[in-house]
Design a protein around this nucleic acid. Sequence first.
DNA 1: CTGTTAGCGCTTTCAA
DNA 2: TTGAAAGCGCTAACAG
Lengths: 341, 341
Amino acid sequence: MRPTVHDIAAAAGVSLATVDRVLNQRPGVRLVTREKVEAAIRQIGYIRDVAAANLAKSRVYPLVFIVPTGDNSFMHGLRFEVHQATLRASIERTDIRIVEVPPFDVPALVTALNTLQGQDIAGVALVATDAPEVRTAVDRLVSERIPVITLVSDLTDSARHHYAGIDNIAAGRTAARLLGRFLGGREGDLTVLAGSMLVRDHRERLQGFSAVMAEEFPKLRLLPVLEGRDDPEQARSLVSKALSANKSIIGIYSLGAGNRGLIAALKAVRPERELTVVVHELTQHTRAALLDGTIDAVLNQDAGHEVRSAIRVMKATADGQAVIADQERIRLDIFLKDNLP
Amino acid sequence: MRPTVHDIAAAAGVSLATVDRVLNQRPGVRLVTREKVEAAIRQIGYIRDVAAANLAKSRVYPLVFIVPTGDNSFMHGLRFEVHQATLRASIERTDIRIVEVPPFDVPALVTALNTLQGQDIAGVALVATDAPEVRTAVDRLVSERIPVITLVSDLTDSARHHYAGIDNIAAGRTAARLLGRFLGGREGDLTVLAGSMLVRDHRERLQGFSAVMAEEFPKLRLLPVLEGRDDPEQARSLVSKALSANKSIIGIYSLGAGNRGLIAALKAVRPERELTVVVHELTQHTRAALLDGTIDAVLNQDAGHEVRSAIRVMKATADGQAVIADQERIRLDIFLKDNLP
DNA sequence: CTGTTAGCGCTTTCAA
DNA sequence: TTGAAAGCGCTAACAG
């Protein structure tokens, strides 16, 4: 049996209440008493039973998820996963509120964050748009001792406690190598479709992609980036135009969302144009396109894992507990047509 | 506040003890009473608080992990992860015992399993050697209502409750496509290095690999499989011999462990021989080889995830609780030199 | 067959 | 500043 508060109380010669006050750093304990108790705690190797504590406190963790609205499947999926988490709320002692904001909209995000100030919240997770105003709002919450976690896209130089998302530079590099190797020494142009350079994940993917291309695949030339705002219709239109304007395009890297539109554009030029295509985010559309050969590889982040991880980390942060680091590392999933889940 | 046993008791007009007996399907309740209580439970939408129950029971979950000994890094890593789990034992209410058996040794595995009969165990996880005798031993444990989970390699036609491992057919197929595409239309021979055809994971990887090669890469010819028993020294020797005997080998798929030996053999013929190489299991050796270009891709299963998942599933099974299916799916990780963790 | 009661490890009044 | 006692949701003796 591991030691309990009773053992500490006995060892320190005080009552349970005093032990509890020390454990929870509450006032009303003389310094000498406190030190006596702390010594006992260390000496005896006490580990708190969080479940029992939460039972006694009837604790629930009020959590807020701030996610972008938007028509693309990835954000749909993310919102779905948060919703799934609400179904587990009672058993996980969470109380999850979802706040939706327009995508790439800095003022809206800042307003949403500022609204949370002073509220009784055990943690907030947000898909960050990477702007100084957002950083300021986040840092203010952090200074109020509210756990803040960025989800999917990180916030530069902010004090957020944790980032639940993939390494986007590595993702871009991986995309480059896959595309480069799949193209096997051919020469030609590459077009890159992004959502917006306002979000850090897209910028980083591009950065990683460009680096590897420059270093290792000099025969492949990058065209100027197309920004489709993660919107299927804009993506379709931009890609169609690019393909008809430039006949030496032999590969495409789509590093954002809105791939439904990209796929439509690709199908419109098939089978005349032979293109090697790597995209991000596994959705019903990219899955089908992978299976029918329209695209060659899908890089993915598991939204379910991201949401569950964010919840675990917010709870742990709120309690000052450690997490299992490996478990919270969000990996870059690579899907070919053979290993789809 | 969600309903508690008190609410059920009140609603059904019985005492807590009776409610508890019904909830835990213990005898000593008249049929009518039981039905009254069950009706109340359903009506009121009761969800059991497992943490509180475990607190009251001072419950611990005695778990057994049966893992192969053996000199290769993967099994080392697996044993390490089980060991890590023992460090979390008190907080997770587990009591983990590790039983080591020689690799590919059916009688030893059967003995280990049979020893567990009748013991007070909340679950056993084993790396299965796929033999009928093992199946019999496993099914006996299952019939004793002990949760049994296969780890890394599954057991054909057995009644095990769950398999915590990757889809190995998909892994083999993925390896084939990567190798095929990386070789970009070249013609030549491929050699496959396996551990043993006695384990199902290796058989399935080969099966998936062969299928895609035959369907989609007819210019690449498969040589007879080399069986290295997952032993570095045997692997080195077999591969060296094969490479010097056949100068038209242009690719290698290593689907088992012991890659330390494979890498040594590859380095011995470099840079004269240009080979595209895909291997399984990320270890310090394969990581270094990936970085220095000796191998081109590593397929991996996350041993830490497998162990943590096995523990969650054993506990849930012991309690008759559901798990989050997505969370327990073990994915095939694909590592290029750019996305190493 | 059913109910009463104490207690799991921790927190929280309320008194002293 | 400290302690006694009740209680979180559930289980386990022990009576009846």
